[in-house]
Design a protein around this nucleic acid. Structure first.
Lengths: 248, 248
DNA sequence: TCGCGCGCTTGATCTGGGTCAATGAAACCC
DNA sequence: GGGTTTCATTGACCCAGATCAAGCGCGCGA
């Protein structure tokens, strides 16, 4: 389903939404060149903090491979993850200097970055880049608000199912077992990181995963490898409206 | 405080971020005229639903007076408020047709609207309007993520204090009693609406408000009129970093 | 090969906030 | 002025999930 992007690539950068979704299809070649000039890659190791809350951010960019998280922490140590960044997700706040949360690489991570100042200049002179940024920010806002429902009103079991279905949707869409509609994927987060995302403790996460396994909603091989035999069942458990069409 | 609206109507519109923050300072006069052409006002009564989740939205705009909320509901009736719209807040998703949540007027409400299609056209030809939209969307995103911390990790008492401090900041900054740094404001929400915003029940909201009153953090006159004798005390209760500068 | 540490699981117990139910108190309307 | 409605408070009890604590299993370095 993403194959046609390749035809557009000319320079590939798998997972970079600026190039793929906004630039390639519509940019003039000199815009592509200017982007190319301010672009660079950075790698991070699992566990490394990319930006501390309050730090100046010198770049915007997007995740190419691996997982990053946005995390807020209270003085007494309580932490809440406020964003989960999977490949192709955008990081950065054009027009703002600081980051209001920690950005952490939870797995080994590669990012495709653009130097911030020149990127902002391009943005202000290239309407469709600005437009794409707005699109992406609206997507993030929708995701944040959906997550507010999860945090505020769902039970622990529903929270786990919600998280699994999000990861499944994003991560497993290519690993679909087409013969039977089962999804297979690896959990990219520790139990503790899941707890931080879900507003739970790691013990509760562990218990609820065990419960979902016991009830046949998921199958586990090792601690991280998940098979979802029936995705709509998982959506039911998540309490989501399941209009069924999603995997059609 | 909004009386001057009348004097201003032909041009300025108190509480409209498009005109005030983005357009007036930087727009050419023909842009102002075009905006004027597609602008209109709408009034709603307390309790009225402005847009149902899934509905097509024909306008974008901003709150002039009154309070609106964004609400998500699960099939079984659990509801979570995902946005609180005070005067000057923006409503709308340029580039998108439907609303993913209910928009409800919780008090009598006046909105300043722009017809959506022509507004989008203007946006794509007027970079600084697009830029302002991005700014506002980033603000909303920050607010949503801050609220995720509230929902996921704070206690009931901290949640109430957080909500009060947000309303105080927005609503009471003009009603400051300068002699003593006390803040006075009216709660614009029922206990139930507060509960929906905070991921609590209305009983818990009521109990915690009583507790804050008993402990002298707030004073109540009637059910809705609040005095905060010491704002930094309230911030402490909210668990927020209180760097003190806010009211300086 | 052993031991050590980290990620995870599971059990026992505790508690914050939910649930259910009764009462109070304004506002409003005959 | 009394009845109805809506919003809020308060009490008694309960339970989902937190907390505290004990192991398990696997990878890794010596």
């Amino acid at each position: 389903m993403l194959n046609d992007e390749k035809t557009v690539l000319s320079h590939e950068c798998e997972g970079c939404p600026i190039r793929h979704r906004a630039v390639c299809a519509r940019c003039e070649s000199d815009e592509l060149e200017r982007l190319e000039e301010i672009k660079y890659y950075r790698s991070f190791e699992a566990g490394q903090t990319i930006i501390w809350s309050g730090d100046r951010m010198e770049f915007v960019g997007s995740v190419v491979s691996g997982i990053a998280t946005l995390t807020q922490t209270m003085e007494d140590g309580r932490t809440q993850m406020v964003g989960l960044l999977l490949p192709s997700d955008f990081v950065g706040r054009p027009g703002r200097d600081g980051s209001p949360y920690d950005v952490v690489a939870t797995t080994d991570l590669v990012m495709c970055c653009f130097r911030k100042r020149p990127f902002e200049d391009m943005m202000s002179t290239t309407p469709h880049i600005a437009h794409r940024l707005l699109e992406m920010t609206l997507d993030e806002l929708d995701a944040a608000r959906e997550w507010m429902l999860v945090l505020g009103r769902k039970t622990a079991r529903e929270k786990i199912a919600s998280l699994l279905s999000i990861i499944a949707r994003r991560d497993a869409s290519l690993n679909l077992r087409p013969t039977q509609g089962a999804l297979v994927f690896d959990l990219p987060l520790t139990r503790e990181a899941m707890a931080d995302y879900l507003g739970l403790t790691l013990e509760t996460v562990s218990r609820q995963i065990s419960a979902l396994k016991r009830d046949g909603v998921i199958e586990l091989e090792g601690k991280r490898h998940v098979t979802v035999p029936d995705f709509s069942r998982l959506l039911d458990e998540a309490g989501d409206d399941n209009d069924g069409g999603m995997l059609a």
